[in-house]
């Protein structure tokens, strides 16, 4: 059975031997990269700097929340606002793989600048098994290019260190609990962030719409879990679809976009079943989205597809 204590001891020792100079870690504040940051911090201390990139694609209040978490964690960190260059790279991109690759490359360019500034030659990433499995390789089909694996540019100058390579989310959480990392139970959030929750071009407008819808889905499902009407799903969010449909709002014709709600149960993200969210909880989400976001959205649907054949995120 997987033993978090043995894993931590072995990895810290290995990291101490591998990283001879300075390193930066790409840290989103999620469980994978935060666990990786704590491991590397234990191994090399002040020679590590955590870098959080505000891509402009993050959820509501996320950057501030991560800043407070880093303060409590006590790691050395820097928050970089790179939203301008991310949106510039995403302009006109509608293909999911091209979006993912554009984001992967932008991340690396930011990290290269940060590494140069800090004098680091290593880049630590919280890559876990599903990231490299789904990114494909010589024998495996590419399901989606995860930004931290398949989205890496070929001419990258940094040396990669990925201590969680063989782990799945449940094992990373076990390590997080063992280390006392507060984000151990945080729901997974993909690196390309809200860009892949907008079908079509991700721009400040479309990302703004899905950000609002994601916040409502999170608030309502978490409230339902707190009051005991359901168990909090493993992952839950909104997707903005470019599909427009006719509606009626206060006797006026509406022709707005569609939000799909996605909530799934999983252990390791390699298979997933859609969550049996009670109808009244779904209705509350639908009412809030269509009322609070009336200018943009007039239809809400619930995704009832398992993985396989779907994946958890839509892109």
């Amino acid at each position: 059975m997987f033993d978090p204590r043995a894993f931590v001891e072995e990895k810290v020792d290995e990291l101490r031997r591998t990283i001879t100079g300075k390193a930066i870690i790409a840290c989103s504040g999620g469980v994978d990269s935060t666990v990786a940051a704590v491991l590397v911090d234990r191994a090399i201390g002040e020679r590590l700097r955590a870098v959080y990139v505000d891509t402009g694609l993050m959820r509501k209040g996320e950057t501030e929340e991560v800043r407070r978490m880093f303060d409590r964690l006590g790691v050395h960190y820097r928050i970089v606002d790179a939203s301008g260059e991310f949106f510039a790279a995403l302009k006109g991109q509608v293909d999911p793989e091209r979006k993912r690759k554009a984001i992967g490359e932008r991340f690396i360019r930011v990290f290269e600048r940060e590494a140069r500034e800090f004098g680091a030659e290593y880049l630590v990433q919280g890559t876990i098994a599903p990231d490299w499995i789904e990114s494909g390789d010589g024998v495996r089909d590419t399901i989606k290019s995860h930004h931290n694996v398949g989205g890496l540019p070929k001419d990258m100058a940094l040396r990669l260190v990925e201590p969680l390579w063989d782990l799945y989310k449940d094992e990373v959480r076990a390590v997080a609990r063992f280390l006392g990392v507060e984000v151990s139970e945080r729901q997974p959030f993909p690196g390309p962030a809200l860009a892949i929750r907008v079908i079509g071009e991700a721009n400040p407008e479309s990302v703004g719409v899905v950000r609002e819808a994601c916040a409502i889905v999170e608030e309502e499902l978490e409230a339902a879990a707190r009051n005991g009407s359901m168990v909090r799903p493993w992952q839950y969010f909104a997707v903005l679809l470019p599909v427009q449909s006719v509606g009626v709002q206060g006797d006026r014709r509406a022709y707005g976009r569609t939000i799909a709600i996605r909530a799934v149960e999983s252990v390791d993200a390699m298979t997933a079943a859609f969550s049996r969210v009670p109808y009244d909880v779904l209705e509350r989400i639908s009412l809030r989205i269509t009322n609070e976001m009336k200018a943009n959205v007039n239809r809400v649907v619930y995704d009832i597809t398992n993985k396989p054949p779907a994946t958890i995120e839509w892109e």
């Binding site: 059975m1 997987f2 098994a129 499995i133 789904e134 024998v139 495996r140 089909d141 399901i143 063989d166 799945y168 390791d268 390699m270």
Partner: peptide, 18 residues
């Protein structure tokens, strides 16, 4: 034996856990 499956690594994990 890796034939390029999405779940090859899962097989490894189950065996390791056993």
């Amino acid at each position: 034996v890796d034939n390029g499956g999405q779940w090859t690594h899962r097989e490894w994990r189950v065996l390791r856990d056993l």
